[in-house]
Computed example of a mutant assay.
Amino acid sequence: MRLSTKAQYAVRALVDLSMNSAGRPVALKDIARREDIPLNYLEQLFNRLKKGDLVRSVRGPGGGYVLARKGERIPVSEIVTTVEEPLNPVACLDESGSGCSRAARCVTYDLWKELGDTIHKFLSSKTLEDLVREAADKTPGIER
C-alpha cells in the first residue's frame, strides 16, 4: 500500500512553506523549485489545501501562501486526507456507502479496519511542526 504523490508532495510542500515563511508569504514557484515538484501540480494541491483551511493565499506583490494556523495544530493526517482519498487500506472500508456486502461475516474485515485505524492514529500523532523540527535537525544551516 502506498500513499499517492499528492500526499507526499503536500506534506513536503507544507514543511517547506513552514520552514521558509517566517510569517511572510512564500511563492509556489519557490517551493516548486526547492522541492522539485511541478508548479502546475503544486497549484492544484494548494487549491485543495486552501479549501481545507490549511493555508491562506496572499495576493499582490510579495504574495504567496502562508499557513492558516500554527504547525503544531496541523496533524499530518489532516494534510493527507485533505489532498488524498480516505486512508482505507481496502475498498470495503470506504465511506462512499458501497462498502462490502460480506462485512458482517468477513474474516478479514477486522484486520483491515485495525490496519486503517493504526495508519490514521500514527499520522494523527505527528504534526507539521514535528516534521519541521526533524527537517531542521537533518538540514545543516537551517535554524528554527
Rank of each mutant, 00 (worst) to 15 (best):
43 E>M: 14
55 V>C: 06
113 K>F: 15
27 A>W: 03
106 C>A: 07
48 R>A: 04
81 T>W: 00
89 P>H: 08
45 L>Q: 00
22 A>C: 13
92 C>H: 12
37 I>L: 10
119 I>L: 14
17 L>I: 00
26 V>A: 13
82 T>K: 00
98 S>I: 07
131 L>V: 10
142 I>T: 10
103 A>N: 15
121 K>H: 05
14 L>K: 05
76 V>T: 14
126 K>C: 00
20 N>F: 11
52 G>A: 11
3 L>K: 02
129 E>C: 03
95 E>V: 00
77 S>M: 08
29 K>R: 14
136 A>E: 12
123 L>H: 02
59 R>I: 12
80 V>R: 03
32 A>Y: 07
85 E>G: 13
127 T>E: 00
6 K>M: 07
29 K>C: 05
94 D>S: 14
43 E>F: 05
7 A>Q: 09
98 S>C: 07
74 I>E: 04
64 G>K: 15
78 E>Y: 08
84 E>M: 03
96 S>Y: 08
101 S>Y: 10
44 Q>A: 10
144 R>N: 06
144 R>Y: 08
60 G>P: 14
39 L>C: 03
22 A>S: 14
29 K>V: 08
125 S>F: 03
3 L>S: 02
54 L>G: 05
6 K>S: 13
87 L>G: 04
52 G>S: 06
85 E>V: 04
126 K>M: 06
92 C>W: 10
142 I>Y: 01
62 G>L: 09
96 S>C: 09
98 S>A: 12
127 T>Y: 04
144 R>A: 05
102 R>M: 08
19 M>E: 03
65 Y>A: 03
123 L>K: 01
114 E>L: 13
122 F>N: 02
37 I>F: 05
67 L>I: 13
39 L>Q: 08
94 D>E: 13
2 R>K: 04
59 R>T: 15
15 V>R: 02
15 V>A: 13
111 L>A: 07
46 F>D: 07
121 K>N: 11
138 K>L: 12
117 D>R: 12
140 P>N: 10
59 R>F: 12
82 T>L: 02
13 A>K: 01
120 H>N: 03
82 T>V: 00
54 L>P: 02
85 E>T: 09
3 L>R: 02
123 L>R: 01
39 L>N: 06
61 P>A: 10
28 L>H: 09
132 V>L: 06
66 V>N: 09
106 C>G: 10
39 L>W: 07
5 T>G: 05
129 E>H: 09
68 A>L: 05
60 G>L: 14
11 V>H: 12
41 Y>E: 07
135 A>M: 09
43 E>C: 11
83 V>A: 03
138 K>C: 03
75 P>M: 12
8 Q>T: 13
44 Q>V: 00
108 T>P: 00
132 V>T: 01
126 K>I: 06
42 L>N: 02
141 G>C: 12
4 S>R: 15
105 R>Q: 13
133 R>A: 09
65 Y>M: 01
96 S>M: 02
30 D>K: 15
33 R>D: 14
140 P>S: 14
70 K>W: 08
114 E>A: 13
123 L>A: 04
40 N>G: 11
26 V>D: 12
58 V>A: 10
3 L>F: 09
24 R>W: 05
